[in-house]
């Protein structure tokens, strides 16, 4: 692997495929999506295969994850929100596991590509719009009209609401993408310092301890970020879904 902070994000074709002039090759990114899906599904199926009344360690973890996401969704969107539970649960686990796989050296981070996070954010955005219109019809437009605002500034507020609504997928996706990208670049840059400095003789090797400590600290931080960004993405999803369920509710 090249000693630069950008090449870790490069896609490598593992199985070249092309349909109608479109490059749809199976790449390292595709591989890690498949690995993410397979390991997560396999873990959950294995963990709950015992169906124990008193859960073991793995089953406890599976149940805790379930309760964690269910609690998040129920708190933000109420009990009607539970009809979106499969979507929210899948999003949380997919992002979390993909982020965590990204923490392994030489592994590819699926969520460090903006197209992936944009697709996930658009999935949520379209779900909100389609379900909102299906359920409430034009009443869904009430999300742009906050209650209790004086009439003379209402047009301005509605404009702001519309802009903020349509910029949601952007902030939703960029937040995850930028965090993963920046974290991995930072790690790689500091790791690069270690090798560059230690090439400069004894003084350099002694000095390389500093970036090494930095990398150790950042690795811990990145694990936190990997979890936190999955959590934030899921939490925002829950709040957006709440708008689809209760358009006049804010």
């Amino acid at each position: 692997m090249a000693n630069d902070p950008i090449s870790q994000f490069k896609l490598k074709e593992l199985i070249p495929l092309e349909v109608g002039g479109m490059d749809i090759s199976f790449t390292n990114s595709s591989l890690f999506m498949v690995v993410t899906v397979l390991t997560t599904s396999a873990f959950f199926i294995w963990a709950i295969s015992g169906r124990g009344l008193v859960p073991g360690r793995a089953q406890s973890l599976a149940e805790m994850t379930y309760e964690f996401v269910a609690g998040m969704l129920r708190d933000s969107a109420g009990s009607e929100g539970m009809k979106f539970f499969p979507l929210v649960f899948s999003l949380f686990l997919f992002i979390l596991v993909a982020n965590m796989f990204g923490m392994f050296p030489y592994f590819f981070t699926v969520t460090s590509h903006i197209i992936i996070t944009v697709m996930l954010a658009m999935l949520v955005f379209m779900t909100v719009i389609l379900y909102g219109l299906y359920k409430h019809g034009l009443g869904f437009l009430k999300i742009f009209i906050p209650s209790g605002v004086p009439g003379f500034i209402l047009p301005l507020v509605v404009l702001i609401e519309i802009i903020s609504f349509f910029s949601r997928p952007l902030s939703h996706s960029v937040r995850l993408f930028a965090n993963m990208l920046a974290g991995h670049i930072t790690l790689k840059v500091f790791a690069g310092f270690i090798s560059s400095m230690s090439a400069a003789g004894a003084v350099g090797i002694a000095g390389a301890i500093l970036p090494l400590l930095m990398v150790v600290g950042l690795t811990g931080l990145e694990f936190l970020v990997a979890f936190l960004q999955a959590y934030v993405f899921t939490l925002l999803t829950c709040m957006y879904l709440n708008d689809a369920l209760h358009p006049g509710g804010h």
Partner: peptide
């Protein structure tokens, strides 16, 4: 690389496949 449009089609396709399967299993 993250902004290279040439890779978008492949990533979208494989995301749809894997996430779709994942959603189904879940």
């Amino acid at each position: 690389p993250p902004f290279d449009p040439a890779t978008f089609a492949s990533q979208i396709l494989w995301l749809v496949i894997t996430f779709g399967v994942f959603y189904m299993i879940m």
